[in-house]
């Protein structure tokens, strides 16, 4: 375990493109996540929630503001960052190298950081995500979506990070598999004391996984609250109430009453 696992974001702004074509994807977002806490970012498509996550993962280099993980500046590209924060992607069909076996995918982060004892660690990681040793030398095309996502989670855990960045980890999966993956993440968080930053458009997933959440719309945080308050149905903002209604499933009357908050 490396670092204390806190995450702080202050006045984060991200723009894509230049001049009149520029899109202000994230506008002055601030939040902080305590070590061991599970924090959710909710919002509809295009609200900028995934962009925040990609900035924290170091995948987006062009941004303003401050972002730190375990006190390390994300912008510095510190070599310790990969061992503190890792990410799980939305689409398990795109996040595994098609020509690498599960074994090679899991051993790669160890090789990069010169960590020995790869064989035993790979086996342990597979066990931890509920996959038997029979999966070790398969290629991704021999795995189901849920199995792929388990491998992706195992890969994120290979470097024993203290922060896990989750980008809609279940939205590409079947409903039945979604619950399995959420339970797996729940268990891993409890066992390893992981800090989790979960991005989702699904309030039910956030309510299941997180302690606190922030609602994003049009690149800004609309409201921040505890999940307990969400459960009691006490959102302050009209936008959050609408998102809550939408997450209960499709209803003709609800759909007709939807207002645009653009």
């Amino acid at each position: 375990m490396s670092g204390d696992g806190s995450v702080t974001v202050r006045d984060l702004s991200v723009r894509f493109g230049r001049g009149s074509q520029a899109v202000h994807a994230v506008r002055g977002v601030s939040f902080s996540v305590a070590p061991g806490e599970s924090f959710g970012l909710v919002g509809e498509s295009g609200s900028g929630k995934s962009t925040v996550l990609r900035v924290l993962a170091g995948l987006n280099q062009d941004w303003q503001g401050t972002a730190t993980i375990s006190g390390l500046d994300v912008a510095s590209g510190d070599r310790r960052l990969p061992r503190i924060a890792q990410m799980v992607f939305q689409d398990p069909y795109a996040s595994l190298h098609p020509r690498h076996t599960v074994d090679r995918t899991l051993a790669e982060p160890l090789a990069i950081h010169g960590i020995g004892d790869a064989s035993r660690r790979v086996e342990q990681a597979l066990m931890a995500v509920g996959l038997g040793p029979g999966f070790r030398f398969r290629y991704p095309n021999q795995l189901s979506g849920g199995q792929r996502q388990r491998v992706a989670i195992a890969r994120a855990l290979m470097l024993e990070p203290s922060v896990l960045l989750l980008d809609e980890p279940t939205s590409a999966l079947d409903v039945s598999v979604q619950a399995e993956i959420l339970n797996l993440l729940h268990r891993l968080r409890r066992e390893r004391g992981l800090t989790m930053l979960l991005v989702s458009h699904n309030l039910a997933v956030i309510a299941h996984m997180c302690d606190r959440l922030a609602v994003m719309n049009r690149g800004a945080i609309v409201e921040e609250m505890a999940v307990a308050a969400l459960r009691r149905g006490e959102p302050r903002e009209a936008y959050t109430r609408q998102l809550l209604l939408a997450s209960l499933g499709y209803d003709r009357a609800v759909a007709a009453s939807m207002v645009s908050y653009d």
Binding site: A57, G58, L59, R79, L81, P82, R83, A85, Q86, M87, F89, Q90, D91, A94, S95, L96, H97, P98, E108, P109, I112, H113, A152, R155, L159
Partner: peptide, 13 residues
């Protein structure tokens, strides 16, 4: 731009 290359970047490759 695929996720598996991004994953390798996040791992510090």
């Amino acid at each position: 731009k695929s996720d598996f290359i991004a994953a390798a970047q996040i791992q510090g490759a």
